[in-house]
Amino acid sequence: MSSAAATAAMPRLHGARIQRRFLDRLAEASGWNVVAVALGCAALLLIYGPLIWLGVMSFSAEPLSGKPYPLTFAHYGLLFANDKWHTPFLKSVLLGLAVALACMVVGTFLARALVRLRRPGGVLFLALLPLFVPGLTIGAALFVFLRTTLGLKLGMWSLFIGHMVWAFPFALLLILIVTIRFDVKLIQAAEDLGAKPLRCFLDIELPLLMPGISGAGIFSFLLSFNELLRSTFLRGNETTMPVYNWAMASAQQSQVPIVFSLSTLILAVTLPVMGALFFMLFARKGS
């Protein structure tokens, strides 16, 4: 009898066990790795596919159609004949350099201060806060504050503030990585040998922090150079490169082909540089 009851109870237990084992096997199957990687790579393709297509279409006679042929250099010819983009380009470069310089200097001092602080958590959180705020929101907020509340005339200076708020957290993070790694004993040794604080900083600390600081400079420059959302609110009458591109792209006008060529050229210069830079940065850490 008892054995009959046991067998009656079996199927349910058995079923549960089979179900568990099935899920386990499902999880253990190496197929999951393949699915994970395939989906991730598909997402990467969603990012880089359009960039490649952008390059292809910049040679197409009709860039907004789906056909790359007939191929033509006409848009590049038009681009070089057209000088309207020179001023925005130059302004973006200068602004980027200013933002990069400011981020490097302020970032270095703040990162050194953070490592020395008793409780850096609050300061760090505040410094990194703009990372969390959407560009449109901080742009609108700065616009209402500077333009409406303070009644100031917007221009390059407000673009600088907006870009600084965007680029600084990234710069700070990069510099923090090297300041945290910095060996304090080096400074102690130099002090024991009679070096003044300024000498210690310039001759010992700064050279060792330099990889992080220069990385931060490049990051900040690129972030500023490509910044659009904050710029649309804070530009006043100024036009930066991304603002120019945006105006051309969203107006659906005949200028679009030029934007394709221009963006392709900028990408052709910046992508390899960024690729090499980041790869070196991450590969060094990976080893």
């Binding site: 990467l44 279409m57 690129l222 960024m274 690729g275 790869f279 991450f282 590969a283």
Partner: peptide, 28 residues
């Protein structure tokens, strides 16, 4: 790994409007 992290980092530094506008010629 370094290569993929690089690929994931680069988009932060690319002009958004040119990256998005291309979709028009893909999806149109």
């Amino acid at each position: 790994r370094a290569g993929i992290i690089t690929l994931l980092t680069i988009p932060f530094f690319i002009d958004a409007s040119s990256r998005i506008i291309v979709w028009r010629s893909i999806l149109g």
